[in-house]
Design a protein around this nucleic acid. Structure first.
Lengths: 332, 332
DNA sequence: TTGAAAGCGCTAACAG
DNA sequence: CTGTTAGCGCTTTCAA
């Protein structure tokens, strides 16, 4: 039933060692024999057993990646890129979804030598320490993407959110706006804090004051609610920088429902460049996070950590990019 | 450095066999000895090596699940449920994302005995056959969720989309509408075809004619475009059943941009109950697919297939449910 | 109730 | 260039 390396050896008239060699592309196999082995493998429809290889080699060829949700186009883009790049290096990606550390779902993946390395993607800020602790103790190489707690002992990749907040705000200022509000994300996210800091700095550099600042979750209903409140109070800002595309979409939704035109009456900038941002009309002006660069750096750094246990820990920043679409216009 | 079952045996003064027994909850271990072993494990921070266990037992304890995107709240809900249920049975879920079979990304997961079973979630219709073929040949138990090709030899779970399409349309009819259009999904999806069939049947039963039927991808821009075309042609239907929430949202977006009120001027029903459907105003009336029931059935059926190689293949249907929200109103 | 011994399928020295 | 010999860490007979 099960065909093993042994069957291939017998069938090809060579030893298991030779078979193993062709399996691993060892150069020291006579072409003729290699062909024989390959032929036997094909005829037997042989596929090596992953567990046996892992056990013998002490590595699994699998990289684990943690995810908090399967409902985010930015994650989708990052993971897609990582997948491809890892494959180029002979590694496979296994994803594990779980809202939080307490769920305990992905711990077993790290605790039984199932993976050669781990990528921690946008963890809940409060959980970061626990993951770092577990992985460090287990001596599993890992990197973090978009983490909130600075930690020089951990290799991480973060977007320059200060710069992003600055540029987004600057774009509005350049359009002639002077009354610019900000809807910030949760305070425990470094990204929220940095985007807000960028917003404030840009205003300061232009000699302006914040028009208003609200803070809440990265969700459509929050942006909607804030906007409805502003409208009800009769002080809807003519320009808004939202910390996140979902918040921005909530803002647009509220405006459209109230008959307020975008960008004629209100200009709005989001952050992340979710696909929703460009599917919706008016299409949202936003700061794009470069998923491809993030993925590329992530894979490189993780592989470096795997291949050299004491590779230097670094924190790399990647620059976001302003994507101007239809939701912003000059002040009237 | 690495602590193995051997170290635990030595430390506890018992044999590896006994340690293995407590690891597997064998009842035949004197409580006293069990405690000693447990104690030793704790002190050594021992965790069994997954590869070794898999090799010795011939099974991995991992269930693979294929995904085409990480950007869908329905998938998110289904996977979340599956995750939990599988954990209850001692299995862990490993996800693999790939847009299509050709990507080849998840095949290695199936080809090297890395998983004990597989769940194929909403595959591209054209790829179904290839996956079935691969898995069948490798003799790996699997089930399909939301597949498009009927295949009595394969265990699958599908939503009763005919019923869904019927009820959605009936809802509009009950509201007094007589001019009801349908925006269908891609023809190669069984779900699209069935929803449309349900739509036509409901109209027929009410003695009505289809007002219009358009067909295209399950995407916001498509719904938007169709609607804009209708508006331009001066024949926007007063009631629309969209095959999917994204299409429906595109319709709403177009209407709002054109100053057409929903549900006053146009009633619209979607399908899937994506979270977006209830985050947007007006909140969308839609057909909910019961993620929890789908997940529960999926896990049960897969485990049955794993535990009994010739368990009967079945196709189970689950019923969708009409969720009435704000996007539909009585005909004026 | 416990343990000795024999694998699970593959790779890694080490010879030849 | 090829094969022999040991394991990798755990589970599984089979005896005791």
């Amino acid at each position: 039933m099960k065909v093993s390396i042994f069957d291939v050896a017998r069938k090809s008239g060579l030893s298991v060692v030779t078979v193993s060699r062709v399996l691993n592309n060892s150069s020291s196999v006579r072409q003729k024999n290699r062909d024989k082995v390959l032929q036997a493998m094909k005829e037997l429809d042989y596929h090596p057993n992953a567990a046996a290889r892992s056990l013998a080699r002490g590595k699994t060829g699998i990289i684990g990646l943690t995810l908090t949700t399967l409902h985010d186009s930015f994650f989708d883009a990052v993971v897609h890129e990582i997948n491809g790049r890892l494959a180029d290096h002979g590694y496979y990606l296994a994803l594990s979804v779980s809202k939080s550390y307490a769920d305990t779902i992905h711990r077993p993946l790290f605790e039984e030598d199932r993976v050669d390395g781990v990528i921690l993607l946008s963890l809940p800020p409060a959980d970061e320490g626990k993951f770092i602790n577990d992985l460090t103790k287990k001596n599993i190489p890992f990197i973090m993407i978009d983490n909130s707690n600075r930690n020089p002992a951990v290799t991480s990749i973060i977007v320059d959110n200060f710069r992003g907040g600055y540029e987004a705000t600057k774009h509005l200022i350049d359009l002639g706006h002077t009354e610019i509000a900000h809807i910030a994300g949760p305070a425990d996210y470094l990204s929220s804090r940095e985007r807000e800091r960028g917003y404030r700095k840009a205003l300061e550099d232009a000699g302006l004051q914040p028009y208003a600042v609200e803070r809440g979750p990265f969700e459509i209903p929050f942006g909607y609610q804030v906007t409805m409140n502003w409208i009800a109070a009769g002080k809807l800002p003519p320009a808004i920088f939202a910390a996140d595309d979902y918040i921005a979409i909530g803002v647009m939704d509220a405006c459209m429902n109230e008959g307020i035109r975008i960008p004629r009456d209100v200009s709005i900038v989001g952050f992340d460049d979710q696909v929703l941002a460009s599917e919706f009309r008016p299409m949202l002006t936003t700061m794009r996070q470069p998923a491809d660069r993030i993925a590329a750096m992530g894979v490189d750094l993780l592989l470096a950590a795997i291949n050299d246990a004491d590779a230097r820990r670094v924190t790399v920043q990647v620059e976001p990019e302003l994507i101007v679409r239809e939701s912003t216009a000059a002040r009237r």
